[in-house]
Amino acid sequence: MRHESVPIYWRNIPHYYRLVARRCKKCGAVYFPPVVRCRCGSRELENVELPHEGRLIEYTVLHQVGTDFLKQKPLIIGLVELSNGVRVTGQIVDAQPDKLTPGTKMEVVFRRVIVDGRHGLVMYGYKFRPVGGI
């Protein structure tokens, strides 16, 4: 949406840039998006960076997009299971959709996500792409 909030972007930079998740100190459960309280009841969670490799579970090619993504369509939207078992949804780039398949090895890349017009902020974040190219 036009004029994205700068404070919202800024405070989420650790998550957007480095996939910082929350891990329960008691039971080890990892949450991404981060949470305040673990399902085991513990409120003691610590920051942990997620691995940058994983495998594709499923994907779709989205043609109807919001205003920020009009010039990027179609978007490939994927569900990826990282090497530690944590699953993350993300855009998939540098890929030909018809060659993607569940199980394809994926890596995390750093990309532009939203560009707020000609004068606003350029906002970055994680996306995925197939390893080794397809």
Partner: peptide, 14 residues
């Protein structure tokens, strides 16, 4: 989730 889903371009359709 506006911070982790909408931000990245996902919609309910996707």
């Amino acid at each position: 989730d506006t911070y982790f889903e909408r931000y990245f371009g996902f919609t309910p359709l996707s």
